[in-house]
Simulated assay, not measured.
Amino acid sequence: MSKQFTPADVATHNTADNGLYIIIDNSVFDVTKFIDEHPGGSKILKRVAGKDATKQFWKYHNESVLKKYAPKLKVGEVKDAAKL
């Protein structure tokens, strides 16, 4: 079973010291170690850290990107009760 997060939990992970977490389609990803590899640069990941980045992600990526990186970056899910 994957770890459960609330949006508030994810929001605390918005710096390199606390870890950089983002939400995409209710999945939580730790992009802390990925920021230097991100083809679009680290700046955009730092900007969305601690937030739901679903809209921004799908604007620039397709499903193959998520399938490629999810196994190593996904750390959990947003709790059903916490969804907006």
Rank of each mutant, 00 (worst) to 15 (best):
I23Y: 01
K83S: 03
P39D: 10
F34L: 07
K46P: 02
V10K: 02
Y60N: 11
D17R: 12
A8S: 09
T15N: 10
D17W: 07
K72M: 10
E77N: 14
G40H: 02
S2E: 14
K33Q: 14
A81N: 14
I44H: 04
N18M: 12
L45Y: 03
I22V: 12
S64A: 11
N26Q: 13
P71V: 04
N62W: 08
N14E: 05
N14A: 03
V78W: 00
I23W: 06
G76L: 10
Y60A: 09
A81C: 12
G19V: 11
Y69N: 15
G76Q: 06
K51A: 11
N14T: 00
I24C: 04
I35N: 01
H61V: 05
V78D: 00
D17Q: 14
V31R: 00
S2H: 13
F29R: 03
T15H: 07
A53S: 11
M1L: 15
G40C: 00
L73W: 08
L45C: 05
I35D: 01
I23V: 10
D25R: 02
M1I: 13
K59R: 12
I24P: 01
A8F: 13
D80G: 04
D30I: 03
D9S: 03
T54S: 11
V28M: 08
K74S: 04
Q4F: 11
K83P: 03
G41N: 08
P7T: 02
E63A: 15
W58P: 01
K46N: 00
T6C: 06
L20I: 03
T54F: 03
T6N: 10
I24A: 01
T32R: 08
N18L: 07
G50V: 08
S64P: 13
G41K: 06
A70Q: 12
V65A: 14
Y69F: 15
S27Q: 13
L20M: 10
T15M: 09
V78P: 08
D80F: 04
D30V: 04
Y69T: 13
V75D: 12
K79F: 04
I44T: 08
V75A: 08
G76E: 09
S27C: 15
S42F: 00
I24G: 05
K51S: 06
T6A: 07
A70N: 09
F5I: 10
V78A: 04
Y21A: 06
M1C: 15
W58L: 05
N62S: 14
L66E: 03
A16G: 08
D36R: 11
I22D: 00
V75K: 12
N62K: 13
S42D: 10
T54V: 01
N62A: 11
A82K: 02
N14S: 07
V78L: 00
A70C: 14
H61S: 09
A70F: 10
S42L: 01
V48A: 00
V78M: 01
V28W: 04
D80N: 09
K33E: 14
E63T: 15
K83C: 04
A70S: 13
D52T: 00
K67R: 12
F29D: 02
G76K: 08
N18Y: 11
T32S: 15
K68E: 13
F29I: 05
H13A: 11
Y60H: 13
D52R: 01
H61L: 05
K3T: 09
H13I: 06
G76D: 09
K46Q: 04
G50I: 00
H38R: 10
F57G: 07
A70E: 14
